[in-house]
Design a protein around this nucleic acid. Structure first.
Length: 278
DNA sequence: AAAGTAACCTGCCCGC
DNA sequence: TGCGGGCAGGTTACTT
C-alpha cells in the first residue's frame, strides 16, 4: 500500500507526537513480523527507551532511539502505524490486526497494524546496517537525484521504464500507483525501454517524479479504498482526487477519451492510454 | 540481463 | 447464501 508519500506523511505525523516519550511496555502478538532480533530481545532492548528522531529512506521508516539503537519499519502492502492518545477509537483499525503495540509512559500508544502481514520490523544496534536500505537508490526528492544522474542511469538500463522506476535500487519510494501516474503525466508508455527515452522525454519523467511525489505528500498520500492507507491518526490521504489513470478499470483517458488499457508488468496492473502514452 | 511466476497473507468484490 | 476466482499500494527467490 504505502509508497513514498504515504510513508513520509506517517513519518511527519509521528514526529510531531511521539518524540522523547518513554516506552514502558511492548506487546508482540505476531512475532514473525520482527526480523531482528528475537521477540524477547526486541522487547528488552526497547523497554525504557525514548525515540529522539524519525527519518525515512525510501519506504522504510527509521526510529532513532536515545540508546543508539534504531527501530526500522517497512509497512509492506497493508501496514499502518497508528498513534492513539487515551482510549481514542480509530474505527477502521481492526484490533484483530494489531500485531505490535508500544505503550508510552503517558498512556498513549503506537500500534503496528497489518492485515496482510507483509510488513517487516528490525531493531538494529548502533553500527548495524540493513542490506535492504544500503541497496536503495536515490531519494527522488533529494539533493543528489539530479537530472544528469537520472539520464545516465536510464541509458544504462535495458529494462522497461516502469520496472525501472519501481526498482528501489534505482529510485527509492516509487510503487505501482505513482509509477502509473508519473508515466501517464509524462506521455510515456510503461513498456518503453529505459534507454530508449530521448533526453526531453527523460526530463519530463524526471520533473514529473518530483512534481507528483511532492504534491502527493502535500495532499497526505493516496487512500484508494477505505480500508487501505491511513495516516497515524487514521485519516485518509487526499491525492486520490488527482489520480489520472491508476485503478481506472473500464474508464477512459482524461485527455483523449480513449478506453484505458490494462496490462501486467511484473505481475502488477498497469494502466495505459494507448493514444497519449507512446 | 530481463521478464515471468510463485510465494508470503487477509479481505473484498463479482459472477454463478 | 455461498463458493471460487481474481484482485489489492511490496518484495524476494527462483525459472525461463
Amino acid at each position: 500500500m504505502p509508497e513514498l508519500p504515504e510513508v513520509e506523511t506517517i513519518r511527519r505525523g509521528l514526529k510531531k507526537e511521539i518524540l522523547n516519550r518513554r516506552i514502558i511496555k511492548i506487546q508482540v502478538n505476531l512475532p514473525k513480523l520482527i526480523r531482528i532480533p528475537k521477540a524477547n530481545q526486541f522487547k528488552a532492548r526497547l523497554k525504557d527507551t525514548m525515540i529522539e528522531d524519525i527519518r525515512r529512506q525510501g519506504k522504510f521508516i527509521l526510529f532513532f532511539l536515545h540508546t543508539g539503537d534504531r527501530l526500522v519499519v517497512h509497512l509492506g502492502m497493508s501496514g499502518l502505524l497508528l498513534y492513539q492518545e487515551n482510549e481514542l477509537i480509530i474505527p477502521q483499525s481492526n484490533k484483530k490486526h494489531h500485531h505490535i503495540i508500544f505503550y508510552f509512559q503517558d498512556g498513549s500508544k503506537l500500534i503496528y497494524n497489518d492485515v496482510r502481514q507483509f510488513g517487516k520490523i528490525w531493531l538494529l544496534e548502533k553500527n548495524d546496517e540493513l542490506a535492504e536500505i544500503k541497496a536503495l537508490g536515490f531519494e527522488p526528492l533529494g539533493y543528489y537525484f539530479t537530472f544528469d544522474e537520472f539520464y545516465r542511469m536510464l541509458q544504462k538500463s535495458r529494462k522497461n521504464i516502469k520496472s525501472f522506476l519501481m526498482n528501489q535500487k534505482n529510485v527509492a519510494g516509487i510503487g505501482n500507483i505513482y509509477a502509473n501516474e508519473i508515466l501517464f503525466h509524462s506521455g510515456i508508455h510503461p513498456l518503453r525501454k529505459a534507454n530508449s527515452l530521448q533526453i526531453d522525454e527523460t526530463r519530463t519523467v524526471y520533473q514529473n517524479i518530483r512534481k507528483i511525489l511532492s504534491r502527493a505528500i502535500a495532499l497526505r498520500g493516496t487512500t484508494m479504498i477505505d480500508e487501505s492507507y491511513r495516516d497515524h491518526k487514521g485519516n485518509k490521504g487526499q491525492y486520490m482526487d488527482d489520480i489520472m489513470i491508476y485503478g481506472k478499470r473500464g474508464g477512459t483517458c482524461p485527455i483523449c477519451g480513449r478506453h484505458i488499457e490494462i496490462i501486467r508488468i511484473e505481475n502488477r496492473s498497469t494502466f495505459v492510454c494507448p493514444v497519449c502514452q507512446i
